[in-house]
């Protein structure tokens, strides 16, 4: 299968992830959408590695995974802390940064 199809799939998944961030109010789901976007990017990297015939893309994808894992740990801890103090995980509740 040509790499272009993979890249198109990655684009679609990335757009779905972006839509999730924009549409869902639940912080955990918004977070999942971010993970989906990272995965879409990873797919693009892996595809590019195959197309160019070297492994650097895969290494970068690997690093992305590591960073995503770290991010998930910290992000979920933050969500927990917010939930603990506000009894809610809605991102609309934390709208103090306003006029």
């Amino acid at each position: 299968m040509s790499p272009d199809a993979y890249l198109s799939l990655a684009s679609i998944l990335f757009a779905i992830g972006a839509a999730g961030v924009l549409l869902r109010r639940n912080a955990i789901i918004a977070f999942m959408s971010i993970e989906l976007m990272l995965n879409a990017a990873n797919l693009a990297f892996v595809t590019a590695a195959r197309a160019w015939g070297n492994l650097d893309g895969q290494v970068v994808a690997f690093f992305v995974m590591v960073v995503a894992a770290a991010e998930v740990v910290v992000g979920l801890a933050i969500i927990m802390t917010i939930f603990r103090s506000r009894q809610s995980t809605s991102v609309d509740e934390t709208s103090l940064l306003r006029w």
Binding site: A15, I16, A19
Partner: peptide, 25 residues
């Protein structure tokens, strides 16, 4: 929704035919 669709469309337009070759690993 509009923006997300537009994002997907532009991304496909941008990279959808960037790699029309495959060296293989």
């Amino acid at each position: 929704v509009l923006v997300a669709v537009a994002l997907g469309a532009t991304l496909i337009a941008a990279v959808g035919n960037a790699l029309d070759f495959s060296v293989g690993l």
